[in-house]
Computed example of a mutant assay.
Amino acid sequence: MNDPYERSAEYIDIMIADAWDAFAPSLAEALGGVDAVEGTIVDLGAGSGRGVRAACAALPDDSPVLAVEPSPALRAVLLARVHEDARLRRRVTVDSGDALNTPLPDSIRALLAMNMIGHLPPGQRQELWARVAPRLAPGGRVILNLAPPTTPAHVPPSLMANLAMGDLTYEGWASAEPSGDHQITWHMTYRTLRQGRPLSEVTVEYAWWVLDEPELARELAEHGLSLRPAGQPDLGLYVASLASEGSEFKG
């Protein structure tokens, strides 16, 4: 398997920490009411496990959690995060598959797809929704985010993270260029510095499929799911539920 995070995984978890400080409260709010729903929590593209930890904190029962992460490098961090917490060890199963080939539970109370939808081209997204919709329990939620840009656009180089640990500083830079009608290519640079002097630099690039809220809503509607924004607008967070629930959807 080609692992796009093989060279950057050592930086990912520390550089998304601040973002998850913002996501976690909105995720907890989006999960409001799901405590009464039976089934499994599924986290697709669970990465280093910050979403798993936030979901389990929001729903602190003993219901099972399936964390799916195909990247061996990120999965190593995920496994370590689950193992260090006794409650997570009891609840969380880590699967090395991906969103399209991992067997899903018959009843899903909540499905997370955070920072991963852009890895799927339109046809694969349709395949994913077709797998998820019949398994979503009444009252269940699909929670995902759309990271900017939502249309193919140039993104100038920008500093996305800067943090100090010990006597080293770690920087993460990002830029992007359009690479198709619905696609961009991200260019990521990770630097390690001591007192401002570069010690190492890792550069990676990967394709990312973009879509906006109306397009996502149309896709989900084809599979009987309705969409609404959630949390702070700048988070790009959305919740989908069974359209048949209509105005009964709360939270």
Results as ranks from 00 to 15, higher is better:
residue 111 L to W: 07
residue 142 V to F: 13
residue 207 A to R: 14
residue 87 R to Y: 03
residue 93 T to D: 10
residue 186 W to F: 15
residue 110 A to D: 01
residue 84 E to W: 01
residue 77 V to T: 12
residue 117 I to F: 10
residue 143 I to G: 01
residue 94 V to D: 02
residue 51 G to R: 05
residue 86 A to C: 11
residue 141 R to C: 09
residue 210 V to N: 03
residue 61 D to A: 08
residue 232 Q to V: 10
residue 152 P to T: 13
residue 109 R to E: 03
residue 106 D to M: 08
residue 158 S to T: 13
residue 15 M to H: 12
residue 222 E to M: 10
residue 59 L to D: 10
residue 165 M to H: 09
residue 220 L to E: 13
residue 15 M to K: 00
residue 123 G to E: 14
residue 17 A to G: 02
residue 57 A to C: 07
residue 222 E to W: 10
residue 58 A to N: 10
residue 193 L to V: 01
residue 109 R to L: 03
residue 45 G to W: 03
residue 83 H to M: 09
residue 140 G to D: 00
residue 26 S to H: 11
residue 75 R to M: 04
residue 23 F to H: 10
residue 178 P to H: 07
residue 99 A to E: 02
residue 192 T to I: 10
residue 41 I to F: 00
residue 79 L to Q: 14
residue 230 A to T: 12
residue 53 R to A: 15
residue 4 P to S: 09
residue 160 M to K: 15
residue 34 V to L: 13
residue 185 T to I: 14
residue 139 G to D: 03
residue 232 Q to Y: 04
residue 227 L to T: 14
residue 131 R to G: 08
residue 191 R to Q: 14
residue 226 S to V: 12
residue 172 G to D: 04
residue 10 E to M: 01
residue 117 I to R: 04
residue 162 N to Y: 12
residue 29 E to P: 04
residue 101 N to R: 12
residue 63 S to A: 15
residue 48 S to N: 05
residue 119 H to F: 11
residue 142 V to W: 02
residue 158 S to A: 13
residue 166 G to Q: 11
residue 223 H to L: 08
residue 130 A to K: 11
residue 112 L to R: 09
residue 107 S to H: 14
residue 171 E to T: 09
residue 75 R to G: 07
residue 207 A to I: 06
residue 62 D to W: 01
residue 116 M to D: 05
residue 31 L to Y: 04
residue 9 A to P: 04
residue 143 I to F: 03
residue 93 T to P: 00
residue 155 V to C: 03
residue 81 R to H: 09
residue 133 A to L: 07
residue 109 R to H: 13
residue 223 H to T: 12
residue 241 S to T: 15
residue 164 A to H: 07
residue 219 E to C: 08
residue 222 E to L: 15
residue 54 A to K: 00
residue 129 W to Y: 13
residue 166 G to C: 11
residue 57 A to D: 09
residue 83 H to F: 11
residue 113 A to D: 05
residue 61 D to S: 14
residue 87 R to L: 01
residue 202 V to R: 04
residue 139 G to W: 01
residue 41 I to S: 00
residue 88 L to R: 06
residue 224 G to I: 08
residue 46 A to T: 07
residue 161 A to P: 05
residue 120 L to Q: 03
residue 54 A to C: 08
residue 64 P to Q: 05
residue 176 A to K: 01
residue 109 R to S: 04
residue 16 I to Y: 08
residue 217 A to R: 13
residue 125 R to W: 08
residue 247 S to N: 09
residue 222 E to V: 03
residue 136 L to G: 02
residue 195 Q to F: 07
residue 249 F to E: 10
residue 129 W to R: 02
residue 88 L to T: 06
residue 239 V to C: 15
residue 115 N to K: 08
residue 138 P to E: 05
residue 40 T to H: 06
residue 115 N to S: 06
residue 155 V to S: 00
residue 163 L to C: 06
residue 43 D to A: 12
residue 179 S to H: 03
residue 218 R to I: 00
residue 178 P to N: 11
residue 176 A to Y: 00
residue 165 M to V: 13
residue 5 Y to P: 13
residue 215 E to F: 05
residue 30 A to M: 08
residue 119 H to A: 15
residue 33 G to V: 11
residue 246 G to M: 07
residue 86 A to I: 14
residue 187 H to S: 11
residue 174 A to I: 02
residue 9 A to N: 05
residue 241 S to Q: 15
residue 13 D to K: 02
residue 16 I to T: 15
residue 61 D to E: 13
residue 241 S to C: 15
residue 190 Y to P: 05
residue 97 G to N: 12
residue 76 A to L: 06
residue 165 M to P: 00
residue 136 L to K: 01
residue 49 G to F: 09
residue 98 D to N: 15
